[in-house]
Design a binder for these strands. Structure first.
Length: 612
RNA sequence: GUGCCCAUAGCUCAGUUGGAUAGAGCGUUAGGUUGCGGACCUAAAGGUCAGAGGUUCGAGUCCUCUUGGGCACGCCA
């Protein structure tokens, strides 16, 4: 995955369709105001009176303004208003003037359709503008400056070092990585941060089992992936403590020795953590997840304490009889919370307070997004409120991107019942299925690296599936459905990219006109217009998804684009059409679709494939 | 008990800041392709948008209540 953010942004502008809509909205507003003054109506036009919508189909137009809200202000039937406004716009030939292209806008014609004022954009104008933009920027076409360089930190993943990643982490990682890439594509400056949960009693439990039963085995000696190796000992601990309840005490003893920096315990802890983290990092590499900074809880767990003490001195908190420090949040409906134990040791919130402050110091942000499961809503409500009361103004820029649980068709995953779906197992199953698919289609010779291609398809299928549901909703993960590569799936969209890539490779054998000689008026079919609009709109879709932290919008738009193209090239020849002018224009359209897919698929963690 | 989230086709999900006839995929049924890769394309059937009120010119979308489901409410993380 190229780090697009580092390649510079030679396509630095607002998304085209946002500009077009804004300018048309302004024109319609000015025209309505003119109409009002002609009618001697002295009233203010409410700012939300005009909203640009999309008509149900392109025959009606490309931008729609429902005029119902104007009826009251103008005391006229909205259909009459629509007629009159359309006339005024057309007779002046205002059409939001200017030469289309290069960040300029696109003209058009107004029509009244009942109470709706519809705008039919100048098709050759928009098409020319899009083709020019894509040929200049390539896949970077979908990038924009919509978020104007704001500094956004994204925290996600946050694994434990006592077990490997499972399906729930995969949703978290997919969301965190996708949101980061979307923000970057929309012009923000993004810093991805991870927080490794590498301390606590659960970590010591796997250590104890290994210590007592491990007999010096290692991941290397057993051939086990290193995070799974550690996870196995965590499972062993639970078996052990069932037959020997005192094992829990011995694990607690390990924790005490760890906190006292007992050299032997720390040594073991370091070794097992290294195994766990190395294994988890392998999974990150396989799924394309990466971080700019990694924080370790073992480093940060003490850092919140000073803040709590200083808050206590300032009277923000209070001390209980037994010495524990509390915050009273009942006035905002959040109850009372302990922030520091009586023995002075840190809690989860304590260290999150310290971590947030450290992060702001390390990299002052305009916004910090925590990608964490919805179970922790309460925790983050408390965290943000406490930071605000400590006087940190940036506390209001903290945002919990809360996502729903991943369930199986049978219900919730339960570790005790062994129904937890392991991330590596799932990936390798999917990869195997993708490989079978390639072999069964006899395409082994066509793809340069079958292992890599199979994995890219598997990762694509998985991420597409996980991101197609809105983040805040719980979702059902049906393994049988996720392995399907047909219909509304990642591989389907990848396939469209591969098909066009194949066409582009073959185009060398055909005569094609240079870009500047292409006659865009030859792209006159309705489906060509809809395709070009889908391409034109993608930067705005990306910007919108970034602004709302919702990759599922992009998933839907990609599927729509792929499906439209699939239908189009099924019904119409592109490379094989006889007329060189038509052929060139259609190939330019196909290329613009390919570049759009190439630029957008990675934003939802789906690799773009030239061949599959 | 209190608070938060969710409820759309048989199943899994979309549904633009409230706007024109509620859409996909899977599954079911019936079809298509002398072509640039069939991981394809077309069509049919399938809906009381959980229920009841309300706001509005207009509600799947906003408000209230009810029902059903999930989560949280630890000196765990």
């Amino acid at each position: 995955m190229p780090l697009q953010g580092l390649l510079g942004n030679n396509h630095a502008s607002k998304p085209l369709m946002i500009e077009v809509r804004t300018q048309w909205t302004d024109l319609v507003r000015r025209t309505v105001e003119r109409l009002m003054s002609e009618m001697d109506i002295d009233a203010e036009l409410p700012s939300d009176a005009l909203v640009a919508e999309t008509p149900p189909n392109s025959e009606l137009g490309d931008i729609a303004f429902p005029l119902f809200p104007l009826a009251r202000v103008l005391r006229r039937n909205p259909a009459e208003i629509a007629e009159r406004v359309a006339e005024l716009i057309n007779e002046r030939g205002e059409g939001v003037g200017g030469e289309p292209g290069a960040g300029e806008t696109v003209g058009g014609q107004a029509t009244a359709a009942g109470p709706y004022l519809n705008i039919k954009l100048d098709r050759p104008g928009l098409i020319r503008s899009v083709l020019r933009g894509v040929s200049k920027a390539g896949a970077e076409w979908v990038r924009s400056t919509a978020l104007g360089g704001s500094r956004i930190m994204v925290e996600f993943s946050c694994p434990n070092t006592n077990k490997p990643l499972h399906l729930g982490h995969l949703r978290n990682d997919a969301l965190g990585e996708s949101v980061s890439r979307l923000l970057d594509a929309a012009g923000a400056s993004v810093r991805r941060v991870n927080l490794i949960n590498d301390r606590g009693i659960h970590i010591c439990q796997s250590m104890l089992a290994y210590l007592e039963l491990g007999e010096g085995q290692t991941p290397e000696s057993t051939g086990r992936k290193s995070d799974h190796f550690v996870g196995d000992w965590y499972v062993e601990f639970h078996k052990l403590s069932e037959r020997d309840p005192s094992a829990k005490d011995r694990a607690a003893d390990l924790l005490r020795r760890w906190e006292q920096d007992d050299a032997e315990v720390v040594e073991l802890w370091k070794r097992m953590n290294r195994w766990a983290i190395e294994g988890i990092e392998q999974t990150y590499r396989a799924t394309g997840v990466r971080f700019d900074a990694v924080y370790y809880e073992s480093d940060t767990y003490r850092s919140g304490r000073d803040e709590i003490h200083s808050g206590l001195e300032r009277g923000v908190f209070y001390r209980d009889d037994d010495g524990a420090i509390w915050v009273d949040l009942e006035d905002v409906g959040l109850d009372r919370k302990v922030l520091l134990r009586a023995d002075g040791t840190s809690l989860y919130v304590t260290q999150d307070i310290g971590t947030a402050i450290a992060r702001y110091r390390d990299w002052p942000f305009d916004r910090l997004i925590y990608v964490v499961a919805s179970e922790q809503r309460y925790h983050f409500a408390v965290l943000f409120t406490v930071l605000g009361r400590l006087g940190y103004e940036w506390a209001e820029n903290l945002f919990h991107l809360s996502y729903g649980m991943v369930n199986l068709p049978e219900g919730r995953m339960k570790s005790r019942q062994g129904t937890v779906v392991d991330a590596d197992d799932l990936l390798s199953d999917l990869t195997g299925l993708a490989k079978n698919e390639i072999v069964s289609k006899g395409r082994e010779a066509e793809v340069d690296d079958i292992e890599r291609t199979s994995r890219d398809i598997a990762v694509g299928a998985l991420h597409y599936y996980l991101l197609s549901t809105s983040p805040n909703k719980d979702m059902v993960f049906d393994p049988a459905e996720s392995i399907s590569f047909a219909g509304n799936t990642g591989p389907y969209v990848q396939y469209m990219g591969a098909r066009i890539s194949s066409m582009i490779r073959k185009s060398e054998g055909y005569e094609l006109l240079p870009t500047e000689e292409i006659d865009v008026s030859l792209l006159s079919l309705p489906e060509e217009w809809d395709l070009m609009k889908a391409v034109a709109d993608m930067p705005a879709v990306v910007a919108n998804a970034a602004a709302t932290n919702n990759p599922s919008i992009v998933v839907a738009a990609l599927y729509d684009l792929a499906k439209q193209f699939s239908r189009y090239y099924h019904d119409h020849p592109i490379l094989t059409v006889n007329d060189v002018g038509v052929r060139s224009a259609r190939m330019a359209l196909a290329r613009s679709v390919a570049e759009t897919l190439k630029g957008t698929l990675p934003l939802i963690g789906v690799p773009f494939l030239e061949r599959m």
